[in-house]
Design a protein around this nucleic acid. Structure first.
Lengths: 212, 212
DNA sequence: TAGATTGTTAATCGATTAACAATC
DNA sequence: TAGATTGTTAATCGATTAACAATC
């Protein structure tokens, strides 16, 4: 109910709740229950109620949760009511796909700076953005007050670039490079590596593929 | 030591260990310790030893773990000694980036089929692959014995496509669509949604961005 | 040998679930 | 009112950590 300190594992589920609720609203739902929300995302209703109770009382006995209201609350809790500016580092195929992705703004993020070290790519335009030289990274990020970066550089470049990002004020890094990076404790890091997920799945897949 | 049933949370860490070990080997390391491996990826040494002990005894007191040997063992445990054929569904910007990504094969995966519903894209070539009509999905996947799919379609299409995939023998799905999908219990699903990670981070980011 | 590090046990810590009074 | 569903407590379950004998 009162937030002394919220377990990180709970914080990590809130975006999932928000995503499911947004889809429900899109589908026209005005209310939902912990039961319905849970079955939608494969989580027990008790867990959802417990998680939400960390932040307040958002439901009504007998009827459940008002979908738009709960969305508003989760956006507030997660601090995505306003849109965050994000810097994207690395314009390979992946970086380009990220830069072109239209699904960020609705959910609280907007790529406003893109950097790349390859001289061939510097100056290219991606939508409304111009690819900038890594040389200007610190100055631009600092000047714009950007606090979040997405790192889509080769694994070998991830740590040095991270150090530069941290040095110029970035406090959240989403790392697409298939490697771990080190940051000071005040900096948030999250990783995304599809191969980790694939290898997690293959552990459970019996035998090999069908005969060819 | 003996594998009665391995907790899923442990299985999920093995790919992380494998990734870190591969980088160590690349860097020329022949041996490592649970201490070193742990500090590299931000996990306690005790946890690494405990996790590995689920599958056997891979280390040597006093000296630690032989890097290439442990890599071999993890690849065996995760069933990525051989390369898995993977079908990719959806050739938007993201699908294209996935299809072009060169980092899969080394780690056990190879995209061998790509499908798309947009008639404009069918027949296009992506590297050595030809974009195929979704109409032939079941036949092609079944014929090739493909067991794993990556889903890079819009959220609204995710569930119907999933049902088709499950119907033709796919047993592992990596879902890039920002939505949850339902599958029978024998099918593995993993998700990747960068926005979930970003929203997880913003919870911790104080105040707003710097003044503009 | 002495130092280092494993594999494993027991203790601690934290997360999930079940259950139910409160109440819409 | 009767039925439904919340928020919360206590019990259960599972994961992590600390510690150390074994041993390379």
């Amino acid at each position: 109910m009162v937030d002394g300190k919220v377990p990180d594992i709970i914080v990590g589920r809130l975006p999932l709740y928000l995503r499911a609720l947004s889809r429900m609203r899109q589908a026209g739902a005005q209310v939902t229950s912990s039961q319905e929300l849970g079955s939608q995302i494969g989580i027990s209703s008790a867990q959802i109620r417990k998680d939400l109770s960390q932040f307040g009382e958002f439901g009504k006995q007998g009827t459940g949760y008002n979908v738009p209201f709960l969305i508003t609350q989760l956006r507030r809790i997660l601090q995505v009511e306003e849109v965050w500016d994000v810097a994207l580092i690395g314009i390979g195929d992946l970086g380009r796909a990220i830069a072109n992705y239209a699904g960020f703004v609705d959910r609280g993020f907007r790529i406003t700076l893109v950097f790349e070290s390859d001289p061939e790519k510097i100056g290219q335009r991606i939508g409304a953005l111009t690819v900038q030289d890594m040389a200007g990274l610190e100055e631009e990020i600092h000047r714009r007050g950007v606090r979040i970066a997405m790192l889509a550089v080769p694994a070998a470049a991830a740590q040095p670039v991270t150090d530069r990002l941290v040095g110029c004020g970035v406090r959240g890094i989403l790392c697409y490079a298939p490697t771990s990076i080190s940051v000071p404790p005040e900096v948030q890091v999250q990783y995304t590596d599809p191969v980790l997920h694939l290898q997690h799945m293959t552990f459970y897949l019996g035998a090999s593929q069908a005969p060819r």
